[in-house]
Structures are given as C-alpha cells and as structure tokens.
Design a protein around this nucleic acid. Structure first.
Lengths: 249, 249
DNA sequence: TTAGTTAAGGTCAAAGTGACATTAACTAAG
DNA sequence: CTTAGTTAATGTCACTTTGACCTTAACTAA
C-alpha cells in the first residue's frame, strides 16, 4: 500500500507528536424496505486522498487550534455533510498506535442522532457502494458489506457507537432526538424496535412509557392515518449529566 | 498569576497545536471514621511546577509518542503514585480552550477502581491538606475543601467520574474491582452504601445480588468475625464491551 | 452458659410485567 | 350509509419483583 504522505516509516512516525482529529457517527431513522420496519442509517464520506483513497469513512478532520472538541466536530460535519445536529455526545477517544498507516492519529469521536427532516437523504441511489459520483452517502447501520470495507478503524468505531446506542438507558431522550418535539407513542415504539431490532407489545410499551416521568402528553393529535388519530407527546427530560450532551457553540 | 512557560499569551498559544495528555482518576474503598461507613478515597499529586504550583492535581502527564492512550495512563500512574491498577476505563476527553492557562491541552482521562490491598495508603496524616511533605496523598472523594482548590479543571473531572460511578449499571463488577476475587455479600453492600451514600436493607440486597447472574457462591467462608461466618462469593461476569475495560499491556 | 453480633432465609402486601382481550375513532370500499 | 379494516387506548389477570420486617443459624466474648 503506497502512500504519498511523509513519515510512512513506522520508526520515523513514532517520533512525531500525535495528530489530534475529531470524527462523528450520525444516526438517523429511515424506512427500510428490507425489514419492513424503520431502521438506523448513517452518512459516510468517500476519501479523496491516501490512505484508503476511495473507501468510505466517518466524517471528520483535524482539530483546529481555535475550536473546542465538540465545535470542531460540528464544524467539520457541516462542511462535509451539510448536517447540523442539535447536540453531540462524546463517544470515545481512539488512540492506538497503528490505527492510521501514516502518522500517529488520536481521534476523539462524537455521535449524534438527527431527525429524518434534518437529514437530507439526497440520493436514494447512493445507498449502493457501486455508485461513484457523490462523496457523501447514507448506509444502513448494519450493512456488513460497507462496514467491512471502511477506512482506518472506523468499522469498530461504528460498532461501538451502535452498542452504546442499544445500551442507552433513557427511553425518552433517544426517541425525542430522532423524532423531534412532538411524537406519538407508536413512533417511539418504532424507534425502539429499530434500535433493538425486535418487536415490542404496543399496549405494554405504552404503559411503561406513560409511567416514565420524562414524557408528557399534549392536547394535540396526529390526523391523517386510516385509523383513530393518536395523541402527540412531548419529552420533558433533561440530559442526565452536562457532559453527556454537549451544546454546540 | 505568573508563569515561566512560553505561549502564556492567549493569541500566541492558540496558534500552537494542542498538546495531548492523559490523566487518571483512581477510586479506592477505605474505612471512614466520619461517616462510620466505608467511603471512597482517591490519590492526588501535588504540582511541583507552574501553573498551579503546590496545588493538588490528578496524576497524569503528556502522551508519549510510543504509548497507546491506556498504556500512557498506566505508565504515568506507576511513576507518580506507585499504583498498578488491573484495568482502566476511559472516562472522557477534555478539550476546552481555556482549561490550561498556558498551552492548549487536550486530556484523555481514565478512571479505575483499586482494592484496598493494592492501594498503599502510606500516610494517614497525608489526608490533611496542611501537610507539606509528600507529593502524593489520598483524600475522601467528597472532600469539598480539597476539590475546590484543585489545579486546572480537575474538580469537574472528579465530579464527572463520581457521577459515572454512581450511574454504573452493573452491580457485580464494581464490587469485584474494589474488593478482589472473593468477597462476602455484606462487603458488596458496603461498596454500594459508600458509592450511593445511603443504607440498604441487608436481606433484600442479598436476595437481589444472588439473583444477579454474574455473582456465584464459593464453598469458602470468611472466619474471624464475632458472628456467624459469611459465605464468600465470586464475580463471574465479563465486561459488557471491550472498550469499557481496557487491558494494560 | 449467656449475651451480642451478623448471616441467611422466610413472609406478605404492594407494585410492576408480559400476554392477551376489548372498546374507540378514524378511513376507505361498496 | 353501512361495513370492513386499521391502529389507538384501556382493561384484565396471572406471574414476578420489590420493600419492610421477622425468625432462625452460627459464630465470639464475657
């Protein structure tokens, strides 16, 4: 594997100070024809330079000297994908020696959930890896084909982000961030079915959600379906700890 | 506040690439005369240089070019405190612009739990801030006096580590790491009482612990008390995710 | 032998959970 | 206008889990 970047020699690059970078894993909910259910999708960018030129990678870039970590992640995300997430949560700092074949890079990775409306799923066709035109595309979060051919250690990063998502305790906050201000209980259930990848009893799920103190009913209903209009609810909780949900300045 | 370090000027230092450092928050259990219960203690080191010379700080240092993040944390810990924790878990990466008054520093912070035996609580007297001799000392994790006078943003870091500890889901693993291989159910209860800072019903706590699949009884008993000898138990669980418990190489 | 102490297990009412049935309120087909 | 289809919303019931408390077991020290 050739590289045009200096310090490709291991002994040499190890003497260089580590580079600091930030990357982001973004999840969004989307209809999935394959499973019939909603499922999780994430945007990736195609690398235009070595190493891993042409392969898919997480959006990210070097940490600017004037940005805090979370600001750098947000700025980079806007530039590369056009996405403006409302909040970012720190996932993990990856710093193994051999994670980049060129220079030593320590990546602070953030993750976020965005609503379907905020996520311009520009091209449905871009869900195929075969496409060679655009440099940003959305993929199913469990698309093995794509994950296994990612640049750097980004496959592990995405898998860890998924693990964290599935092990998030708070019911309401995830749904709220994927769905928006107001949502029906059935939509929340769809979120959980997508994340946990299993069906849930609608009646029991409703009972548990309503008892969870951080979800509150509104006076509005969602009309338009071919059935009784469901009531809309609102999320009233706040992040459990400031660092678990960083604001973007 | 004077400083002998270059780039003290804000405009200047912002052009410098960020420095990468690692620090560690270590918790250990210890008898506490004040509360009558066991409580959490942590080791701090006294700074011998500006900035914050003379104040207490978390053990830590710059990231060596040859070390992975977790190895750097472990090596630094050994050098500054003599402690060799069996595992480290990544807590958070702190990277705000103004967290160090001199150069821009991004700190990847780890945390760990160590058993009382592994923690050489050398000097009981060192629990007082007034002492001026040693450069390492142990303090109660809720000692406001000390926390409020810590160097850098280390007070917030410790508070976040405590929050994470209190919100850890797994019953068994925390106790196992603070106590060792074999332990009585009452010792586990003491751990929880110390961490959560409240009393728990011994009978109900026992019932719940025994039902938790990752704790298993042994054939041994702990003799020596002035009462019926309690049975010893063993932790059989494994970390929920590799990144949640990094091995030290 | 007895008092003191903690271990270990049991009881019982209250609360919570999972499986499933019933009624409510809309749309669309005839 | 009526009826079938669909999902919303609530209720029922057996079963499990929880919190408060009691009883008995097994040791030490006086």
């Amino acid at each position: 594997m050739l590289s045009q970047i200096p310090f490709a020699n291991v002994a040499e690059r190890r003497e260089q100070p580590p580079i600091l970078a930030v990357s982001t894993v973004i999840f969004s909910l989307r209809d999935d024809e394959r499973s019939g259910r909603k499922s999780l999708w994430l945007p990736l960018v195609r690398r235009t330079r070595d190493p891993y030129r042409g392969q898919w990678a997480l959006p990210g870039g070097p940490l600017g000297a004037r940005d805090s970590l979370v600001d750098a992640a947000a700025a980079n995300l806007r530039e590369t994908t056009g996405l403006i997430p409302r909040y970012l949560e720190q996932l993990y700092a990856f710093g193994d020696l051999e994670r980049s074949p060129t220079r030593r890079v320590v990546s602070v990775v953030y993750w976020a959930l965005v609503r379907e409306d905020d996520a311009p799923h520009t091209d449905t066709a871009a869900t195929s890896v075969l496409l060679d035109d655009p440099n940003v595309a959305w993929f199913r979060a469990d698309d093995e084909q794509v994950l296994q051919n990612m640049a750097f250690d980004h496959q592990q990063i995405i898998e860890y982000a998924l693990w964290r998502l599935r092990n998030k305790v708070e019911y309401g906050s995830i749904a709220h961030r994927l769905l928006g201000e107001r949502f029906t209980l059935a939509q929340v259930r769809e979120v959980y079915e997508a994340v946990l990848n299993k069906s849930l009893d609608p009646a029991n799920f409703r009972r548990q959600l309503r008892n969870a103190a951080d979800i509150e009913e509104t006076d509005e209903f969602l009309a338009g379906g071919k059935h009784r209009p469901p009531r809309l609810y609102r999320y009233t909780g706040s992040p459990t700890h400031p660092l678990e949900s960083e604001n973007i300045s």
